[in-house]
């Protein structure tokens, strides 16, 4: 390598280093501008919702708001529970047993996010071909366990984290 070439190499290295360090900095500046659109600290810490369920008769349901989304609380009748459990797993696009979707010993209470897993509409209750919910946006049918049976939705309606504070109160979140 001649002297001239060595000189050129060193200069190239300097420029490459400068560009690289500059690019790293630019990337580091972009991150806060993106991250600011993520849920902020107040959103992340959002309260849990406590629901009084003492007034709900078997067969009825109520809808409450949690994290800006509706949550269905349905008190199912023994018939409905039996119906949900009689379903053949092979008939389900997203196989899941009813027992997995409720708390043990509290089988009558179905607590789920009332959001269609297709594109986020709120399904209507007591509608559709399977005695459960029907999404009016694109025609997804859910059964009495909130499982998808027919239509474009890919998965069952989501079960949020919840617990029974006492016999009359459910805490969601």
């Amino acid at each position: 390598m001649s002297k001239e070439e060595k000189k050129v190499n060193r200069r190239d290295f300097l420029f490459t280093a400068t560009y690289t360090v500059g690019a790293v900095g630019l990337g580091a500046v972009i991150w806060p501008m993106i991250d600011q659109m993520n849920p902020d600290k107040a959103q992340k810490a959002l309260a849990t919702t406590e629901v009084d369920i003492s007034q709900i008769e078997p067969g009825n349901s109520i809808t409450v708001l949690w994290r800006g989304k509706p949550v269905f609380l349905k008190r199912r009748t023994p018939d409905e529970i039996a119906e949900a459990r009689a379903v053949n797993m092979d008939d389900l696009p997203d196989p899941q047993r009813d027992e997995e979707r409720v708390k043990e010993g509290k089988d009558e209470w179905l607590v789920m996010l009332g959001v269609c897993t297709h594109l986020g509409c709120v399904p209507l209750k007591d509608k559709g071909d399977y005695n459960g919910w029907f999404c009016p946006c694109h025609g997804s049918h859910y059964d009495v366990s909130g499982r998808i049976r027919k239509g474009p939705a890919p998965t069952n309606m989501e079960i949020p984290k919840f617990e029974f504070v006492d016999n009359n109160t459910i805490k969601i979140g």
Binding site: P32, M33, D35, Q36, N38, D40, K41, A42, Q43
Partner: peptide, 10 residues
């Protein structure tokens, strides 16, 4: 200033 991610910086 308090909640938004990097809000104070911006």
């Amino acid at each position: 200033m308090r909640n938004v991610n990097y809000g104070w910086l911006i």
